[in-house]
Design a protein around this nucleic acid. Structure first.
Lengths: 137, 137
DNA sequence: CTTAGACCTGTGTCTAAGACACAGGTCAAG
DNA sequence: CTTGACCTGTGTCTTAGACACAGGTCTAAG
């Protein structure tokens, strides 16, 4: 099985397959022609990686998880602790995006009623430069 | 004014100042000793950049905006159209994060009641591997 | 004047997770 | 045997700075 076939069978790209292979998450055999040859084991391995990515784990997390399981240990405790961390990060980013979205949207609606101004020596764009101040007023 | 002074006066880092300088957004004079020397014009320029970053513009956007204004044109139309784009992107990312947060949080709570399992030949971690399926059941 | 130490410099490299470019290899149809 | 479609591995690029590092500057003490 070639990289592109594996990729297509799981709905991802050959570049992604090659990336995981470069990192050592997939370990294909070298086929005769020098191409990498992926077996059924790689299919389920990739399926696992994609599921984990989908749940918010980083590739580094996944590497750690796989290493643990390859040592014969249960990865479950690690998995639980990692997702706790990732969820906290996600929550922070989520709040940040929420705030940003509000700011952007309020800027957009305010700016639609404001006139254009030419730049001056100390002003690039009055829309941006006055935004925070106006807000306070 | 040295990079670190400029940075501190606006609550950012010297690395950030140097980064913007590298990109040509700040154009300090060369001081005698070879260090870069920032004037008051750079202070207001940096203030502008930080405000724009804060509103969700990318550094590339800001470069574009500054170029427009340095051509003597009003950057306002560009600014409005850029923020519209950025807001749409932010909205998409926001929805994605919302969904991800929900998925992660539901995974976490479910996994806390599930037992550890040792890995098998075709299973790295049953928590992850069974998550989507269980959800459907 | 000298020296120590604190602080600063510019430059180069690193990050995540692939996407993209590219020179070249493979392979089926003709 | 050749054309063309598709594939390969490798190297570089992306964001917005952070960090490392060898060395320069500057102030205070001796």
């Amino acid at each position: 099985m070639k990289a592109a076939e594996l990729a297509k069978s799981l709905g991802t790209t050959a570049d992604t397959v090659r990336y995981y292979t470069r990192l050592g998450l997939l370990k294909p055999a070298k086929s005769v022609n020098g191409y990498k040859s992926y077996s059924n084991k790689e299919v389920s391995r990739l399926k696992f990686i994609l599921s984990a990515r989908n749940l918010g784990f980083s590739v580094a997390d996944i590497k750690e998880i796989i290493n643990e399981s390859e040592d014969g240990k249960s990865a479950c405790p690690l998995v639980r602790s990692l997702i706790k961390e990732r969820l906290e990060e996600t929550e922070k980013q989520f709040q940040a995006m929420l705030a940003l979205r509000g700011k952007m949207s309020s800027a957009l609606s305010r700016w639609e009623e404001m006139e254009d101004k030419a730049p001056t020596a100390n002003m690039v764009c009055h829309l941006i430069e006055n935004f925070e101040q106006i807000k306070k007023a």
